[in-house]
Design a protein around this nucleic acid. Structure first.
Length: 126
DNA sequence: ACAATGACATAAG
DNA sequence: GCTTATGCCATTG
């Protein structure tokens, strides 16, 4: 199972209205410093992918896209549609009372990764 | 195998 | 809070 497949499997399981940071995704995959690799996995995703890439943001709670001119706007709009609130500074509240950061239990993560490993879903490369 | 790159993260100034 | 510098991982030439 490739690293990016695990990333996709995990991102696919992010519930609507919740988000994950690149670093968090990496940590959930037992790669504490693989944030950049996560970003790479997102970048190679086609827009038509079934992976909710828009639910992945940076550690500041802001949009870090650069895949397109108006990518930031697109991602923000998609998240707003799911109830994710952006403040004037352009970032979501990851913690606090309205924290939208998804915090799955370790066993959940392992279960979904195990399921993905058994399914071996086709890589959505382009 | 080596060097460079990138939707990142963290520390320091 | 913002800008720089360094570290990390996977991928690519």
């Amino acid at each position: 199972m490739n690293f990016n497949e695990q990333v996709y499997a995990l991102v696919r399981c992010i519930p609507p209205g919740k988000v994950l940071t690149y670093g968090t995704v990496a940590r959930l995959l037992d790669v504490p410093h693989g944030a950049r690799a996560v970003g790479w996995a997102m970048r190679r995703l086609p827009d038509s992918s079934s992976v909710p890439w828009f639910r992945v943001i940076n550690a500041k709670g802001g949009i870090s896209t650069g895949y397109a001119e108006n990518g930031e706007l697109i991602q923000r709009t998609l998240l707003e549609a799911e109830g994710v609130h952006f403040n004037a500074e352009g970032h979501t509240n990851l913690h606090g009372p309205q924290g939208v950061l998804w915090k799955p239990s370790p066993w959940e993560v392992r279960a979904l990764l195990d399921a993905a490993a058994h399914q071996e879903p086709p890589l959505p490369s382009e």
